[in-house]
């Protein structure tokens, strides 16, 4: 497994001239390996989005360095490095440039000087990967939120990036749209082994990741498997997040005197425990 991206003691402040101001990102280290899905969670203002901007060189750290495919990111290799990263942002309406879905997906390819025939193939392929081939000639603004975000993902995929970054890409969608996008990401991981970083405060989304990075006030508060992070329980609430649904419910059930083996993170585990501890007797 090779390393796709890493942060080494990265510190960034929006107001470095003000001595007493808190760093937006403070001495953060982490690495993502090829094929992984990492979720970055944390409250508003915890530094999640700043990290995203540092990863693709919209911002440069005052201390430490960001490495893409092992090389430090700098002004000289910025464009080359960016072409390895596809990014999908929060608001589906702010990222369309093309008059039709296929024009939109082709936009970045055109910018990168991809020959026409190759472009056609890649557009078709990318739209097929997000299951939007039927909408090739539709106008983007007539699509649903989930469809728009899938087209945005296709636009990123067409460049054949090593890494897809989702910056709160599901937070403005209705439940169905959110599900569509997450299923698309899961399918892409299964098919082409895409490496994904998702920045989110949706715990259910974070639960799908291999690893979770938990940010608080610019610092990395914890890093681990989703099950490890969500076992932090009340600490999550204290730091602005929520408890997973099943965890909350298992706690309440135990308070009500319902025998359970423990507190659970997934619904499935809780249902199974309810069954073994109460019904299967």
């Amino acid at each position: 497994m090779s390393e796709i991206l890493s942060l080494h003691q990265v510190t960034f402040s929006y107001t470095p001239e003000v001595a007493e101001s808190r760093n937006a990102v403070d001495d953060v280290n982490f690495a993502i390996q090829e094929g992984e899905w990492i979720a970055i969670v944390g409250h508003n203002g915890s530094g999640k989005s700043t990290i995203a901007k540092l990863m693709n060189g919209l911002l440069f750290p005052q201390q430490g360095e960001v490495r893409i495919l092992g090389k430090p990111l700098n002004e000289d290799n910025l464009w080359q490095s960016r072409s390895q990263m596809g990014m999908v942002f929060q608001n589906p309406d702010n990222q369309f440039v093309g008059a039709t879905v296929q024009d939109d997906v082709a936009f970045a390819l055109e910018n990168n000087g991809i020959p026409f025939e190759e472009m056609v193939t890649r557009v078709h392929q990318a739209l097929a990967q997000v299951n939007m081939s039927d909408f090739m000639n539709h106008e983007p603004h007539h699509l649903s939120g989930g469809q728009k975000q899938r087209v945005a993902i296709a636009g990123a995929l067409a460049l054949k990036p090593k890494l897809l970054i989702l910056d709160e890409a599901t937070s403005m969608l209705d439940p169905q749209g959110r599900m569509e996008v997450l299923q698309t990401v899961q399918a892409l991981r299964a098919e082409i082994g895409l490496t994904v970083i998702s920045i989110t405060h949706d715990l259910e989304e974070a639960m799908l990741a291999n690893r979770v990075l938990f940010m608080n006030d610019g610092k990395k508060f914890a890093e681990g498997l989703p099950s490890e992070i969500f076992s932090l329980g009340d600490k999550l609430v204290e730091l602005g997040l929520d408890l997973p649904f099943a965890w909350k419910l298992s706690k309440l059930l135990q308070q009500e005197g319902v025998p359970l083996l423990g507190q659970h993170i997934t619904e499935e585990e809780l249902v199974n425990d309810l069954w073994t501890s109460n019904f299967n007797k």
Binding site: F245, L249, L252, L253, Q255, V258, E267, V271, L274, F279
Partner: peptide
């Protein structure tokens, strides 16, 4: 899901976690 497990419906539709926990208990 819980109703499937119990093989019968609870007495009401619960809308909060607190309500459902109390009802199951």
């Amino acid at each position: 899901k819980v109703e499937q497990l119990m093989n019968k419906p609870l007495s009401k539709v619960c809308l909060t976690e607190e309500e459902l926990a109390a009802e199951i208990a």
